[in-house]
Amino acid sequence: MTRDFGGARQGVFAPVDSQARVDAVVRRLGDAIELGLLADGEQLPGESDLATRLGVSTVTLREALMALRQQGLVTTRRGRGGGSFVTVPEGPAEERLRGLLIGWSTEELRDLGDHWAAVSGATARLAAHRTEPDDLVQLGRSVEQLAAAVEPPARSRVHGRFHVELAAAAQSARLTREAIALQTEVGALLSLVLADDECLKDVCDRHRAVICALQDGADDRARTLAEACVRLCVGRLVELRLATPGSADGSPP
């Protein structure tokens, strides 16, 4: 059975739009592997197919695959039954995730936070007008699952689902797709933030406060709370990024 997170997985192979295409492809596929969107041992589509779907030239794709091989995330076998396969490397996940984080400059993280806060704030505001009690049940269930999740990757997955559910509660397919794409991008990194129990508790309390605001139909409060929670998470990421040794601010790894 193929792994799929609904639209999130489709996002993995959607065209990349950055100028720095090799890095964009490396980051996209690397994050997807860290997130579990692509499974250990899963065969990637053939080079020309993959290049077409990602909207990059085959040369670019090969360079990206080379970088992924160097990170130990992809193995390429030649000959019959050959191809490129996802490999989830041994070693502490946190160390590998910190490696991923180095691929982000603080400016890129700040911009990601701006984008995510804009989407999350807007969805919270709309959801306050359009939420009925049944939407709140799903959101509440996600918060309690998040509070109870033990492993950081599981925390990150459920945390991402909360944001997707929030966008769905806003009744906007476009904002939901945007939330899914954002979670695909940020999800793996967030397990670094959510690994900290105190931070997890803080995030859960903030999510509960967002739900209360939705319940009250308090649109401004819902937006403010949702934005603040995103800023908290991204702020932690920036702190971690700045504390990661051997990485000059903004420079590629």
């Binding site: 609904g6 639209g7 997707v164 769905a168 906007s172 397919a173 939901t176 797709r177 899914i180």
Partner: peptide, 8 residues
């Protein structure tokens, strides 16, 4: 509803 499971 926004069907984020099957079709988005």
């Amino acid at each position: 509803y926004v069907d984020y499971l099957c079709s988005d």
